[in-house]
Design a protein around this nucleic acid. Sequence first.
DNA 1: ACAATAGTGTCTGTAAGACAGTATTGG
DNA 2: CCAATACTGTCTTACAGACACTATTGT
Lengths: 238, 238
Amino acid sequence: MSSSRAVSSNLNFERPLVTVDVVIFTVVDEQLCVLLVRRPEGDGEPFPGRWALPGGFVNVHQDASLQACAERKLREKTGVVAPYLEQLGSWGDARRDPRGWSATHAYFALIAQPAISTGSGAVTEWVACDQALRRRLAFDHHSLLDAAVERLRGKVEYTSLPAFLLPEPFTLPQLQRIYEVVLGRPLDKSAFRKRMLDADFLVETGTLAREHGRPAAGYRLRDREQATLFPRTFKAAE
Amino acid sequence: MSSSRAVSSNLNFERPLVTVDVVIFTVVDEQLCVLLVRRPEGDGEPFPGRWALPGGFVNVHQDASLQACAERKLREKTGVVAPYLEQLGSWGDARRDPRGWSATHAYFALIAQPAISTGSGAVTEWVACDQALRRRLAFDHHSLLDAAVERLRGKVEYTSLPAFLLPEPFTLPQLQRIYEVVLGRPLDKSAFRKRMLDADFLVETGTLAREHGRPAAGYRLRDREQATLFPRTFKAAE
DNA sequence: ACAATAGTGTCTGTAAGACAGTATTGG
DNA sequence: CCAATACTGTCTTACAGACACTATTGT
């Protein structure tokens, strides 16, 4: 397609740089964490040594689509193949990258556990979200991360999204903990259980023993492709 | 910024084409409509003569940002300056444009009325959404339009978005009609009014006379920058 | 007075939150 | 038996929906 066909209309104008960045969330020690990578120190590199979200240029010969590009970045950094992956939005202007007018396509991913923290050569680190937002990140990655956290927090109020942060099978008390971690407030056990089970997005898979106390029922997601919407938010807006 | 500074890192790879498309909604005759433009017939133009969403290449010298670019497209086609404008998402892959790997940033706008239907030279038309989705549109614009309609329909269930489709001041019965048009089902008057007034996003501006019957109270939006979220959807999910 | 439209009051059903209760495991 | 955790039942409250009612205009 992009090879030989002569096109008479004028395409000889300057094109922006096109990148994809991925905000990868997981939960470690009951804390919502995001994956950061260190920018290289090479000559001419923007923001050398700064922490940044994993990402990079779209390779028009390697990447079939933006989504495929995001999946590639995620795979390269974490080894995870089939995560929950959702487009977050795009950020593009003349000044966000010193190398020129650039537009980045941001995705956000929810994965179960840092399967491999160090994949390729780059230095990567899981950082608690609140802490990551206090660091001086490269480019406008503070904005991207902020938007991602806000979107996640918002959606947690009325979707099953947090279930994608847990390895399967999981128990309802575990899931409730995740909700509470992301929302930053406690939830009522009875209401939580009724809500999850009524939404009918979980499949029971047997009983899971824990260290102490009564074993809990194990569950997995009926559909790992998309989240379920609840008819209401958790607490009425005020 | 993009001028003279020598950068040693290698930027000599092929860059995708970067465009912005805008899905512009309005309501005409109690129908949700979208603005379409006819593709030019020139030699080498993709999809000559087909209907498409208004949009075009990002001009790195003219557009300060993607959002500014979308506002420019909207202004050029409709003359509208300050609409509700929200990013919809991005579509990018190797095949959507025959001229090469391209990525488009889609926005969706809600405006009050086709102030000027014909701005620049291009042929433009307001088309009812359902009908537009049955036409064969250029590029992957069917997908973009479909996503925009779905997003709008979805958000109408729990946000004040439809208010941006009306010229101010408007009345509650008018607003309810818009909700019903977009949702495609009738709503209860009492419940609707309670919900709108409780959400506290409207400001009363006096009384508006109509052709027949009792005059209605006029309202305008307290904040034209963003929509208000309701705590529940209109009808419980089933 | 009547048509037409705007706006209100009242009842009911549903579901979330609060919270106390019961159930099942290991030591 | 006790600690610890999982799960359930019951009561209350909030609010959306249904629907009948009242209010205000023009003719």
